[in-house]
Amino acid sequence: MSEVKQNRKQFDLDVGEKKPEAFKQLVQAPKPQPKRKEVGIKGEYDFGDSGLQAPPSKPKRQSSKQKSPKGDRGRGRPVTLTDERYRVKVPKKISPALNAKLDVLEEYITELSDISGKVRFEDIINALADTYVSKSLTPAKEEHFQQELVGALKKIK
């Protein structure tokens, strides 16, 4: 113990005898980079608002078929409905088998012969319902059906 106390009292000041230790450098020098290429960017210092505009689009090629404007296609039927209750708002959801059956049945429904142009799904169902009411129901039931139909149409409006 006494040696430790003695060592503490004396300081080793003989620095000249010892060589300073070499230190390992933490940050290494950068490796030489290959020569950098200079790139010129068009409009590098152009800070106007022209960069926000859409690039010019290529003109569309005209196809060999002449397309008519959207309003001139002649598809569908002209809008002649004055009562909104009769406007179709929900697409038909039927199976392809039933759709095929209705397409074949369309040729046999005589009530549809006076319709010019495309026969709509609504026309087929309406003709079938009218035919059923007139052929299958008794006159009293048919009259009651007509009254209920008028009441149901009033509720829609």
Rank of each mutant, 00 (worst) to 15 (best):
M1F: 04
E3I: 13
N7L: 15
Q10W: 07
V15P: 03
K18Q: 14
E21Y: 09
E21R: 15
A22I: 15
K24N: 07
K24E: 11
Q25M: 13
V27M: 08
Q28K: 13
P30E: 00
P30K: 06
P30Y: 00
K31H: 01
K35C: 02
R36V: 11
V39Y: 02
D46A: 01
G48H: 00
D49H: 02
G51R: 12
Q53S: 03
A54H: 11
P55F: 05
S57M: 10
K58E: 07
P59Q: 04
P59H: 00
S64T: 15
K65E: 09
K65L: 13
Q66R: 14
Q66G: 12
K67R: 13
K67I: 11
D72S: 12
D72P: 01
R73I: 04
G76V: 01
V79P: 12
V79T: 08
L81A: 04
T82N: 11
D83C: 08
E84S: 10
E84N: 13
R85Q: 07
Y86G: 12
Y86N: 14
R87A: 05
R87S: 04
R87G: 03
V88K: 14
V88F: 02
P91I: 09
K93Y: 00
A97H: 09
L98W: 05
N99Y: 06
A100K: 13
A100F: 04
K101Q: 10
L102I: 05
L105A: 08
E106W: 00
Y108I: 04
I109P: 02
L112F: 00
L112R: 01
I115A: 00
K118M: 05
V119K: 05
E122R: 09
E122L: 05
D123V: 01
N126E: 08
A127G: 02
A129V: 15
A129N: 11
A129M: 12
A129I: 15
T131I: 10
V133E: 06
L137R: 05
T138K: 08
T138Y: 00
P139T: 08
P139H: 01
Q146H: 10
Q147C: 03
L149V: 07
A152E: 08
A152F: 05
A152N: 09
